[in-house]
Simulated assay, not measured.
Amino acid sequence: MVVETEGTFEVDGHSLYTKSWLPDGPAKAKLIFIHGFSDHLGRYYNFFPTLAGCGIAVHGLDQRGWGRSVRKPAERGLTGPTARVLADMAAFITPHLPASPADPPVFVMGHSMGGGQVLTLMCRDEYQESVVRRVRGWLLESPFISFSPEEQPSWLKVFAGRLAGRLLPHRQLKHDIAVQHLTRDPEVAKSILADELMHNTGTLEGLSGLLDRTEALAKGLVRPRAGGAVRALWIGHGTQDKTTWFEASKKYFDQYAGEVADKEFKAYEGWYHQLHADGPDSVQFYKDVGDWILARSEEKPEAKL
């Protein structure tokens, strides 16, 4: 039986919504999850309960500006700059890190925008000793390293957006993502359009920070350090993803993840952006993630997902 608990996490004067999925019995591992743009923890269907069912405790939060962490319209997309985004993530991850060898190992995973955020945190110098070295493995689902060709904005729009972001950082801007590019499951697509928590609204400051992060990742300016604080890395991406770009993820893995000895890239042939909600095939994604985590936990159970 999986136990679900809700709560709040206090950081920098803000209260962020949290939710956990806990196994019935001692956890074999912990997974800290970071969601994507306009997303929230309620959008991941059976993914988290399935992981908890095989002994992996899952802890996540609705990030600042998103989901149930938004209390009024003015807070929509109000993420702050990249430094604030990363500080929120590090503050949430830290209490879950092992305090002794007897504690279950911790893994960190991000989806889409959250994948780009996790990858950025994983590579930043200031977090290497306090966070990165204490995490057993990092997982990225369809990470936002670059726009897909279908979603690529013009250079003029990007330039104007960054300039305006310096002048009016908290100005809100709606950015609708084509639902038909997110999932092959028509019922999931309908539920996205009906979800009032998915407001598709960013601020110019937040969107500029997102663009800056993707540019740095795509150019390899942000990559794992030589010497090995990153212990293990898994990237999964659908080949037909028209929201974030499969080719950018594969290039990053091939060219810039060489410093990570334990790494795996999983191409999901024909899949779209939301691997966790892409129709009946998603059970294979659940299995891949769960098996990868359990194989790197101290206890290696005989049973698989």
Rank of each mutant, 00 (worst) to 15 (best):
L204F: 08
R223M: 15
W245Q: 06
A232K: 03
K30C: 08
Y252R: 04
D291S: 12
V283S: 13
A248E: 08
D281Y: 07
K30S: 10
N46A: 15
F92Y: 12
I293N: 00
L210G: 01
L210T: 06
A257G: 10
A218T: 13
V188L: 04
T79Y: 04
D125K: 13
N46W: 10
L78K: 02
G65L: 02
G25V: 12
L51A: 11
A102T: 12
P49W: 01
A27V: 11
F92M: 04
I145S: 01
P105R: 02
S100F: 11
G116Y: 01
G161A: 08
V108L: 13
Q255A: 14
P26R: 10
E264K: 14
H59Q: 12
R43T: 12
I93P: 04
G236E: 00
G202P: 01
S15A: 10
L211V: 12
G67D: 03
E302S: 14
P186I: 02
E129N: 15
T243H: 00
A52K: 00
L78Q: 06
C123Q: 05
T94Q: 15
D24S: 15
V132C: 07
Q128Y: 10
M198F: 04
E151S: 03
I293M: 01
T201L: 02
V283C: 13
L211N: 09
P301R: 09
V70N: 01
A90C: 08
R213Y: 03
H96K: 05
L163F: 12
E215W: 09
T5I: 14
S154M: 12
E150S: 15
L86H: 07
C54V: 15
Y272V: 06
M89V: 11
L16S: 07
K251F: 14
N200V: 02
Q128W: 09
S148V: 13
V70G: 06
P153R: 05
H273W: 05
C123T: 13
K251I: 09
W271N: 04
R136Y: 06
E196Q: 14
V283H: 07
D281R: 10
A102V: 09
L156M: 15
R134K: 15
A87S: 14
Y252L: 06
R162W: 06
T243N: 02
E264A: 14
L31I: 10
V283A: 13
R124L: 14
Q284Y: 14
A218I: 11
E141D: 13
L168D: 05
